[in-house]
Amino acid sequence: MCHQSVGLVQNALEAAGIATVSVSVRPEITAYVGVPRAAYLRFPTGQPLGEVGQPHQHEAITQAALQLIETAKEPGTIVELPFRWRRMPRVVGGGD
């Protein structure tokens, strides 16, 4: 249901002149609600941007998702990002 809420807010932002992208781990919900652009990852709920203590993974995924704002050509674009779960080397720290 988080995905439904994301899609409803996303569309309102887009209609207000803000270009948006959402991250989705449930593309069927995202597609049903209807959003301008979404980045799909085969990740578990609660960790759509990656694993705990993986700032480089979060950064790569966030950057790839944001770049969809520049590259997507039409409303309803959902692109699967080429990241896989538990394949990134763990790093320590990287927080505030």
Binding site: A12, V25, P48, L49, L66
Partner: peptide, 25 residues
């Protein structure tokens, strides 16, 4: 749709935001 989303959109637009990333749980 009727309350939360338009209010967040209004505030972000007023702050001069160009783009947004939305994330679920």
């Amino acid at each position: 749709v009727e309350e939360t989303a338009p209010e967040i959109a209004r505030r972000l637009a007023a702050d001069g935001v160009d783009a947004a990333l939305l994330t679920p749980g």
